[in-house]
Every structure is written in C-alpha cells, then in structure tokens.
Simulated assay, not measured.
Amino acid sequence: MNDLELATELADLADSISHRHFIAQDFTVETKPDLTPVTECDRAVEQAIMDRLGEARPDDSVLGEEFGSHGTSPRRWIVDPIDGTKNFVRGVPIWATLISLYDGETPVLGLVSAPALGRRWWAQTGQGAFAQALGQPARRIHVSEVDDLGDASLSYASLDGWKELGIIEDFLTLCASMWRTRGYGDFYSYMLLAEGAVDLACEPELALYDMGALVPIVLEAGGTFTNTAGAPGPFGGNAVASNSRLHEAALDILGHIEPAGTAD
C-alpha cells in the first residue's frame, strides 16, 4: 500500500467515526485549556488514525492535535481529526479531517475529507491536486487566474485574531481592496482557493496540524502558501494563501508582519 492509498484508508476510517456522530449529535463537548472545544469524536478519530499508522507505518512519527507528537522519524504524519470543531458541535457541515505526510519540512501529500459536504481533496507533491464529490469521478483542480485584488474574492475565518496580531487595520484595508469577501473559514477557504472559486485565503493564528494538509493541495493546484512574513509552508504560525498572482500584493498590505509565535 502506497502513502496515498494509506491516507485514503485513514480518511475513510475517520469519516466512519465522525460523520455518524455529527448526524446524531450524540456527543459531549469539553473546553480545552486554550478555550477551544473538543469532543470525544475528535479523540476517537485521532486515536483510530494513530492505531492504523502504528500498524502500517510503525517507523514513521505522528503529530496530532489531541495527543501531540509520537516518534522521532523525519517522515511525519500530521493529523487534525476534526478541523472546524465549532462547526461540528453546532451542526454546521463545514468540518473535515486533515491528513498529511511530510519528510522533514518537505510535503509529501495532503488529504482533506469533509464527509458532511460529501467532498474530498488531495495532492501528492509533483502529481497535481484533485477533488472529488460523493459519487462523482475525481477531477484535477487549479487556482484561478485573477491578477488584480479589485477583481478577487477573499475568504477568511474571523477578525479577532488579526486584532491580536496587531494588524486589524491592515487586514480591513485588504478586505476593502477586494471585489468580494466571505468568511467561509477553516479548511474550506483553502480548498475553494485550490479549486479556483476564491482567489485569496488567510488566517492570523494557526497550528501546524491546521495547515499541514492544506499546503500540498494549494501548491499542487498552482497556488502559493506562506505566513504573513512571506515564509513558505505551514510552519510560520499563520497563513496567507493565494492563486500566486495576488500574493505579493496581499503581503504588501498585511505588512510582512511576523506572527507572535509558531505552533508545532
């Protein structure tokens, strides 16, 4: 079984746990020390993925949102069991399991599975990015060709984090320069970007497990993914992703501001 086949199996496993509980809304919600919600579904999905990786890739390391890091291999699986937990607990279908594999800081693959939307996206480095709707054949996806902010659509998550980062006015300036802004939020902003449905996506505070799976999909779709300081990849504590044509213009408005810290 190759890595993408394994990632697909892991996503199927995750969906089999999370989706039925989402439909039934039969779970309890706790608040973590960082004041974000977590459910037993988050933990059950991550545990199931870790267990399967322990069988199929015992020499690889794993980083998950709920149970942290395990192993020391540079080949590392990065897992967010339910990205969009606040949506999950309120019955909003925009949530997904994020699975990626990195060799050191080099992305190998990323997979995003959103069973409540009936959608899945994936990419392997050098092999393109793909999306599939339930019951439909997979299709290759690519970012848009919009090259002016005034003609472009921006998707974001919230405003509070930009205030905490100290650049809320810069972010609002960016919003005012766009043709359209919408808060699609979480993983969905970046998948819409990869499909060419929006042209720019950004968030002020993110952990590695929030971004690991997004990066290879955006890059393989022809996009660019950095932090606000322009550092590429998912390691910079926040995200600015674009169709590549708009990237420098967006960073110029946001001021190339270094995030307060990074999360691993």
Rank of each mutant, 00 (worst) to 15 (best):
S18Q: 13
L193N: 09
T125I: 00
T262W: 02
L149E: 12
E46A: 10
V215P: 01
V29T: 15
D210M: 03
L200E: 07
N243W: 07
W122F: 04
V240D: 01
P33H: 02
V108T: 12
E258D: 06
F67D: 10
L254D: 03
W95R: 03
S73Q: 03
G223I: 10
R75G: 00
F235N: 02
S242M: 07
A213Q: 05
P33M: 02
E205K: 13
S100W: 01
A48W: 06
W77V: 08
R182N: 13
V45A: 07
V143R: 02
D186H: 12
L208D: 02
V62H: 08
A24S: 11
P204E: 10
P216M: 12
D186G: 00
T85Y: 07
A263F: 14
R139T: 14
A123K: 04
D160H: 15
M178C: 10
G185H: 04
K86I: 11
F130E: 03
V112F: 04
V198M: 11
E105L: 08
S155A: 15
D26M: 05
D264H: 08
G185T: 04
I168R: 12
S100L: 02
S189K: 05
N227Y: 00
G104Y: 06
A197Y: 01
G161H: 02
A129K: 01
G54S: 09
T228G: 05
K163Y: 06
R90N: 13
A197E: 13
L4M: 15
S244P: 00
F235D: 03
V89N: 01
V215D: 01
H19M: 11
A229K: 05
A56N: 05
E169D: 14
A201S: 15
H21F: 07
G126P: 09
Y102V: 10
P81N: 09
S242V: 08
A194L: 07
Y209A: 09
T125A: 05
G183V: 00
P232S: 07
A152S: 14
A239K: 04
D151A: 11
P33V: 06
Y102W: 07
A56R: 15
S16Q: 13
R76W: 05
D12K: 14
M211V: 08
A131R: 02
G230W: 04
V89Y: 01
D15G: 13
S113R: 15
I167K: 00
G255T: 06
L165Q: 14
M191A: 04
V143K: 01
R20V: 15
M211N: 04
E105Q: 14
I217W: 01
I82W: 00
H70M: 12
L101E: 12
E5Q: 15
G183E: 15
D15C: 11
L214R: 01
D151C: 10
E248N: 10
H256M: 02
L109W: 06
L254M: 14
T28E: 13
I78W: 07
A207W: 13
T106P: 00
M191F: 03
A207P: 00
P234M: 05
A231I: 06
A231E: 07
P204D: 15
D170Y: 01
E203Y: 10
G126V: 11
